[in-house]
C-alpha cells in the first residue's frame, strides 16, 4: 500500500505593532502585542481558502494543480488556535515550498466584516508528522511564557491574565494540548490526539 506523504507546517501569526499604538513602551508589552490573539473571524476553512487563493495568485494554475487540483484537496488546516495565533497546515510534501511562499506573501487576516488586519505569517517548523509539529508548538509556547516572566516581573499580572485567556480559548478547540503551555502533563494527551489524524 502506497502511503501519501505530507508536510505539516507549524505557523505563527504575528502582529508587528503599527504606529497607531505608541503607548506600549516596555519590552514585554511589545512582545505581547506582537503575539496578540487572532480575531475569531479567521476559521480553519477560511485560512485554507486564503492560502489556496494566494498560491493561485502567485503560482497560477500550475501551483493549484501541484496542490492537488481545484477541489478541497491538498491544503487542510489541522489546527488553528486564535488565542495563541498558532496554526498547523497540512500540504503535499512535493509542494510545501509553494505553500510556504504563499504564506510569506500573505499580509492580512480578515477582521470583522470587510476589514483586514495587517499581519506576518511565520513558519516555525516543517515536520513530517503532526506529532512533532504539535510538540514543537507546545515547546515554543512554554518557552515564550518563561521568557516573558523573566523579561519583566512587573508585568506579571498582565501576563497571568493573558495566559489564563490562552488556556480558556485553547480548551474550546479540538485539541486542548496547545492551549495549556504551562502544565507539565501534556504528553499523555498528545499520544491520544496523534491517532486521530
Amino acid at each position: 500500500m502506497v502511503r501519501v506523504k505530507h508536510r505539516y507546517l507549524l505557523l505563527d501569526i504575528l502582529y508587528p505593532s503599527t504606529s497607531t499604538k505608541p503607548s506600549s513602551t516596555s519590552s514585554s508589552n511589545r512582545v505581547l502585542s506582537i503575539h496578540a490573539p487572532t480575531p475569531d473571524t479567521l476559521t480553519p476553512g477560511l485560512l485554507a481558502k486564503m492560502v489556496r487563493e494566494e498560491v493561485a495568485e502567485i503560482f497560477g494554475d500550475w501551483g493549484v494543480g501541484r496542490l492537488g487540483g481545484a477541489g478541497a484537496g491538498g491544503i487542510s488546516v489541522k489546527y488553528l488556535s486564535p488565542a495563541t495565533s498558532t496554526a498547523i497546515i497540512r500540504c503535499p510534501r512535493a509542494s510545501f515550498r509553494l505553500v510556504w511562499t504563499a504564506l510569506t506573501y500573505m499580509t492580512h487576516v480578515p477582521e470583522g466584516r470587510d476589514a483586514a488586519r495587517p499581519c506576518v505569517f511565520r513558519v516555525v517548523r516543517v515536520s513530517g508528522t503532526i506529532r512533532k509539529a504539535e510538540e514543537e508548538a507546545i515547546r515554543r509556547a512554554r518557552r515564550e511564557i518563561v521568557r516573558l516572566r523573566g523579561l519583566d516581573e512587573a508585568v506579571f499580572g498582565v501576563l497571568g491574565g493573558d495566559a489564563g485567556r490562552k488556556t480558556a480559548g485553547g480548551s474550546g478547540t479540538d485539541s486542548a494540548v496547545l492551549g495549556s503551555p504551562v502544565d507539565g502533563d501534556d504528553d499523555e494527551d498528545m499520544d491520544d490526539d496523534d491517532d486521530d489524524y
Binding site: P16, R97, W100, T101, T104, T107, V120, F121, R122, V124
Partner: peptide, 18 residues
C-alpha cells in the same frame, strides 16, 4: 520601510529556495 515588510529569517531562506 515598515515592520510589516519584514519576514522571519527562515521564511526568507524559503523564498530564496523558490
Amino acid at each position: 520601510r515598515r515592520a510589516l515588510g519584514v519576514r522571519a529569517p527562515w521564511d526568507v531562506i524559503n523564498l530564496t529556495c523558490v
